[in-house]
């Protein structure tokens, strides 16, 4: 009996992706702000309207929810694919403890835990999951002065989109910001 219950619970976890994607699909715009200073490219981005009721319900159910962001520094090409100068991945995970009514938050960058904390504030969770300020992600060394680049941010969720017949990502949220590199 306990096994059946547990099985169902695990399967539920896998199927949760659908709701996450449903929530993300409504907020597909990521506002990105790149800033070059002190030899680094600082990237700030915010995924707006990502925290809708469906996402909150998923988090409140106790599932560990992760927002992963793939950030690419790219240069446009006219007749060929754009060139990716550098890439980074940041993620934010949250797990809600129903008993203590606290959120366990953690942030990672390229596999390293950058921050971990416990909070009871849902607004803080939303901000921690969707807003990143001035992350020093890229070096300006390989960039050409006065050339135009852009920073692209694509958001994924984990567990991922898993529609029962076609689980592959079809329309993940993304955002782009262009800038001219002036040393």
């Amino acid at each position: 009996m306990a096994g059946t219950e547990s099985t169902r619970r695990r399967v539920l976890v896998a199927a949760a992706v659908c709701l996450l994607v449903a929530g993300l699909r409504a907020a597909e715009i990521i506002r990105v702000t790149p800033l070059a200073k002190n030899g680094r490219i600082f990237v700030s981005f915010e995924m707006r309207d990502a925290f809708n009721d469906d996402i909150r319900a998923v988090i409140q159910s106790g599932l560990t929810t992760t927002f992963s962001y793939d950030i690419d520094l790219r240069r446009s090409a006219t007749l060929w694919f754009d060139k990716t100068m550098s890439s980074a991945t940041v993620s934010a995970s949250v797990r809600y403890d129903t008993l203590t009514r606290r959120y366990q938050l953690s942030r990672m960058q390229d596999g390293r835990v950058e921050e971990s904390r416990v909070t009871e504030d849902a607004e803080m969770v939303r901000q921690a999951m969707t807003t990143f300020e001035q992350l020093p992600l890229f070096s300006t060394t390989p960039l050409e002065p006065n050339a135009e680049y852009y920073v692209r941010v694509r958001a994924r969720t984990r567990p991922r989109n898993a529609w029962f017949f076609w689980p592959w990502d079809r329309d993940a949220a993304s955002g782009v910001a262009r800038f001219t590199f002036i040393p």
């Binding site: 976890v13 199927a15 949760a16 659908c18 709701l19 469906d54 159910s61 106790g62 529609w163 029962f164």
Partner: peptide, 15 residues
């Protein structure tokens, strides 16, 4: 578990 089951009702049926 119940909450997760409820929010994941449709995807679970999909699975």
């Amino acid at each position: 578990g119940y909450s997760q089951l409820r929010v994941l009702k449709r995807p679970l049926a999909g699975v």
